[in-house]
């Protein structure tokens, strides 16, 4: 009789736990989140996966793509960032509108990846025509297209990578490190509008063209270089590329 009662208790407990948690917990070994307050229609946060179609489509594209350009690069910017990641178990959320976050030091691992990003500012001369030039006597007025910023290279300082892992955690994989690098470069490109690079790009473009025009016989103080008015937005090529894995976005 006692055994039957014990079995009934265990069975009831298992039924109760299984009913409460059915379909909600997807496991934490892969690092996915458990949403304890999910709506019935919501799903737990899925693991980040690239759709299979993207890899296949990219494989079908030509490996090399050659395109003719007419870009005058006038300034080069070198940006440094240390990408850090702490792989801790974290419980965060809201209780009655109050945000909270708590980290559990269970199996700690951390990594710091120094990266160098090179950006260049250029003026696209493919659309430059005689309408961009005004001459009045010895004066010449050139209206240049808006400068643009493009990412030309990003490099990981492999020598400078520091990694710390606890005994019962595995080391960071190469795939994880490349993912962190991608996030780091993405964050650099997102910061570019705050760096006000276009102002220096315009100055450098003028400093490049004025000596050229001077060598053709124009006096320096008779050379006027302007850019299109009203366009202050920094257009960065590279951010979309990393997100969409395409190189050029116009």
């Amino acid at each position: 009789m006692k055994r039957i009662i014990y079995l009934l208790i265990i069975l009831a407990a298992l039924i109760g736990i299984g009913y409460a948690c059915r379909g909600r917990i997807k496991g934490m070994a892969g690092g996915e989140a458990v949403n304890l307050a999910a709506d019935a229609g919501q799903e737990a946060m899925p693991a980040q996966k690239r759709p299979e179609g993207d890899d296949q489509a990219e494989a079908r594209l030509l490996i090399s793509r050659i395109s003719q350009q007419s870009r005058l690069y006038t300034a080069e910017y070198r940006v440094h960032k240390i990408v850090t990641h702490e792989d801790l178990l974290k419980l965060k959320g809201q209780i009655f509108g109050i945000d909270f976050e708590h980290r559990f030091n269970i199996g700690d691992r951390r990594i710091a990846i120094p990266i160098e990003v090179t950006l260049k500012a250029y003026v696209d001369f493919s659309t430059f025509t005689a309408r961009n030039v005004e001459r009045r006597g010895s004066f010449i007025h050139i209206i240049l297209p808006d400068p643009r910023i493009v990412l030309t290279s990003s490099k990981v300082d492999h020598q400078g990578i520091k990694q710390f892992t606890s005994l019962w955690r595995s080391a960071y994989t190469d795939e994880e490190m490349t993912e962190f690098t991608r996030q780091g470069v993405e964050s650099v490109l997102a910061e570019v509008p705050n760096m006000r690079l276009l102002h220096t790009a315009r100055d450098c473009a003028a400093q490049t063209l004025i000596p050229l025009l001077s060598s053709l016989g124009y006096q320096e103080d008779h050379i006027i270089i302007t850019f299109r008015d009203g366009v202050e937005t920094e257009r960065i090529e590279g951010l979309e590329n990393i997100k969409q894995m395409n190189h050029e976005v116009h």
Partner: peptide, 19 residues
């Protein structure tokens, strides 16, 4: 407005960008 999430951090930390 109440939700809880338990999991490992996938995103990198916010660190400064140095020109």
């Amino acid at each position: 407005p109440m939700g809880l999430e338990l999991g490992f951090q996938k995103e990198i930390n916010q660190t400064p960008v140095v020109l």
